[in-house]
Simulated scan of single mutants.
Amino acid sequence: MISVLFAVLTAISNGSASVLQRRAAATVPDTEAMRLSLIGKLLRQKVWLAGIGMVIVAAVCQAVALATGPIAVVQPIFVIELPATLLLAAHLFHVRLPRPVWLGVAAVTCGLALGMGCAAPGGGTETVHGPAWIPALIATAAFEAVVIGWALGTRGNARAALLGLAAACGYALTAALMKDAVARLEDGDGFLVLFESWQLYGTAVAGIGALFLLQNALQAGSLAASQPMLTLGDALISITYGVTLFGEHLRTGWWILPELAAIALIAAGCTELARSPLAAGTKPPPGRVT
């Protein structure tokens, strides 16, 4: 129960961060794409710094969630980050959400409930046997190289979607490394054992890389293009890490059919929600969001 609570808090923080960062990144010209100078320009914007603050809050909540629950349970819950953020934004802006947005919220929520109920993720170990990380890291590096290379050959929303997927893979790896690092606190003496683990530093590197890719995804195109790839990619790749690295299990067989239906529901809901002006980080006219 603790892991679910902190996963929900993480989702709300991450969703708020994405909206704030999108608002900042959209003001940066295309000439800054895939350059470190992009981060330099964003650092001068208070709205982007506020988004980073929410990222830090999310990281703390995520660490608690992963320390108390399986990665295949915690990470998929993050798909609610966009619905939660839109509902909060609508409350703050005193606007009424239209029917398509509510349908999007319902689609994501029902999709998550259906997927989690059918997959029934659980089990597994708290830590990863050291050598098991080698093929996982090689496969991740190869996947990232292919996706980023593909993205660099495109423009606009296609690039945003591909970079969103690359960022999702980075965030999923960050979660897996974080879970492995935090779990070692239970096996060692005090916090020193945490700082002695390479997984902690791997978490920092993977997280920074994922953040860089996300900024470029948000700068390249619309949130409607990047957000579904980011949301679903993070959940599905995290589940893959959970199964292959931590030995967690999911239902298979005929259960795969409703699980695929759940993925389709979540994808459709995220796409609809990401089209909202609130998701783009802009304040809509009073009264209603279209």
Rank of each mutant, 00 (worst) to 15 (best):
I263G: 00
P277Y: 13
G15T: 09
C169N: 07
L177M: 05
V205T: 07
S3M: 03
L49T: 12
L38D: 11
A280C: 01
R22Q: 02
I134V: 15
T140K: 12
I71P: 03
S226G: 15
G269M: 07
R99H: 14
G209R: 06
A89P: 07
A261F: 08
T282L: 10
L92E: 15
Q21S: 02
Q62W: 01
N14E: 12
L9E: 10
Q219L: 12
L273D: 06
L152G: 08
C110I: 14
L192Y: 07
I256V: 07
L192C: 03
I39H: 12
G170Q: 04
G117E: 12
A33V: 13
I208D: 09
V182C: 08
A84P: 03
T290P: 14
G190Q: 11
K283V: 15
L260G: 02
G269C: 00
L213G: 11
I266L: 10
L88V: 06
S18W: 09
A136D: 14
L20K: 03
A11I: 03
M1F: 10
G242M: 02
A67R: 11
L260I: 14
S197G: 13
A11R: 07
G190S: 14
A65E: 04
V79H: 07
W254P: 11
R44C: 06
R96L: 07
A67Y: 09
G117A: 06
T252M: 10
L152W: 04
F6N: 08
L152I: 09
T85D: 04
F78E: 00
E81C: 12
T125Q: 15
L223M: 14
L257G: 08
T10D: 00
M178H: 03
K41S: 11
E272W: 14
A167L: 08
C61G: 02
T290C: 11
W150K: 09
D180M: 08
E259H: 12
A113F: 13
I52V: 08
Y241E: 10
A106L: 10
T174M: 05
G281K: 03
V8E: 02
I263T: 05
R159A: 07
T231Q: 08
L92M: 14
C110Y: 04
A139C: 13
D234E: 04
F93W: 04
R251C: 15
L162N: 07
T231F: 01
L236M: 10
L260Y: 05
V95R: 00
A141W: 05
A264E: 05
M229R: 04
L43Y: 06
L86S: 00
G104F: 08
L88Q: 10
R288S: 01
L86N: 01
G123E: 00
L137Y: 03
L236E: 08
D234I: 14
G53E: 11
